[in-house]
């Protein structure tokens, strides 16, 4: 699946990228583009190929086939030149234990070709952005908490003001205050730098990213804005309804409303006599108004809430990965037991 955003210049172009370990393909024919200033979330279950892709992008690992261009520079042909455009924060964020934060960041700034006259200013700036300048600047990295270490990794990634920032699980181990600070930091980079973030914290990704790519079993199974993915992967709308009606009676009423509505489950029964239900509508479109008008006809129901439940990124993620697993198992059974794989497609 290739996502072409031709309107804005591309900072990252990945074409047919494959990485094999013997017979096992960690990533298989992955293609995508990331526009200048775009913030992209890279999601996938454990072992899906996220870190492998990110390591190839950062020039740490060669691909078996395919190409990666960072700001027009081929990572395979000119790795050193391509690395000048990248700020990479790897998974687990390895840092030297025996150096002080300011010492380490100064070294990193110098090695990343930051002009000598600007090193001090850049280090100070990065430490201020990541809130390291108060207490942590002169502390030994080995004595820092996980949250502070993550901040050092992020400060290192943004230090040289690269065009592309790649962060593998940047918010892992951070407290809510720190997560908000990182979110604000990434928001401030939007439009200036292209940012690729992998994370398991899906609500966080939804809040931060312009676009989401979901990788599963080494292939990109979904790519687009959270809104477009909702349309592609979620076939049913859901509504939460809170009213005074026992389940049997409510089911009957819902069937009468029609529009493909059905009661999916009773969420909770409150002591004040209210019942909270989850409704599923197989017909797309906002049915909230119709539900309210139908339920308001009977005053016994005392409708308290009717709310459209927006599918979360988690649900999209689950649907996209489930679909890819089903497609793979269908292809496998087609190749082993005969039958056309095309016939079996289209589920999910």
């Amino acid at each position: 699946m290739e996502d072409f955003s031709q309107e804005i210049p591309n900072s990252v172009i990945v074409r047919r990228l494959t990485k094999s370990y013997g017979a096992v393909k960690a990533i298989d024919n992955v293609s995508f583009r990331i526009g200048k200033g775009e913030v992209v979330g890279f999601l996938g279950p454990n072992g899906a190929g996220k870190s492998t892709t990110m390591r190839i992008l950062a020039g740490l690992m060669p691909a078996t086939s395919g190409s990666v261009h960072i700001c027009g520079v081929s990572v395979a042909t000119y790795p050193e030149m391509a690395r000048r455009h990248i700020g990479f924060m790897p998974e687990n964020n390895p840092l030297p234990e025996d150096l002080r934060v300011s010492e380490y960041l100064t070294f990193r700034a110098r090695i990343k070709d930051v002009p000598s006259s600007e090193v001090k200013k850049r280090v100070q700036g990065a430490m201020e952005i990541c809130q390291l300048h108060h207490k942590a600047a002169n502390k030994i990295i080995g004595n820092l908490s996980k949250g502070f270490r993550q901040r050092v990794g992020i400060a290192d990634a943004i230090l040289a003001k690269p065009e592309v920032i790649i962060m593998d699980e940047p918010t892992i181990g951070l407290d809510p205050h720190q997560i908000i600070a990182i979110r604000e930091l990434i928001n401030s980079l939007r439009g200036k730098m292209s940012v690729i973030i992998s994370s398991h914290i899906l609500p966080e990704i939804e809040l931060i990213c312009d676009r989401v790519m979901i990788i599963n079993q080494g292939t990109i199974v979904a790519s687009g804005t959270p809104e477009s993915l909702r349309k592609d992967f979620i076939s049913q709308d859901r509504y939460e309804v809170s009213l005074k009606s026992p389940p049997e009676e409510f089911k009957r009423v819902v069937e009468q409303i029609g529009c493909g509505l059905s009661v999916e489950k009773l969420l909770r029964a409150s002591a004040d006599g209210y019942f909270d239900y989850l409704l599923t509508g197989s017909v797309r479109g906002n049915l909230g108004g119709e539900i309210i008008s139908e339920l308001s006809k009977d005053t016994r129901f005392a409708v308290r809430t009717v709310a459209y439940r927006k599918p979360s990124l988690e649900e999209i993620f689950m649907a996209a990965t489930r679909r890819s697993w089903e497609q793979v198992s269908n292809l496998k059974s087609a190749s082993s037991g005969g039958g056309s794989p095309e016939k079996r497609k289209g589920n999910g």
Partner: peptide, 14 residues
């Protein structure tokens, strides 16, 4: 062992 070599290799050094 620490992984810092990989971090170093993400900079423009050989």
């Amino acid at each position: 062992r620490m992984g810092t070599l990989a971090t170093l290799m993400t900079t423009p050094v050989t």
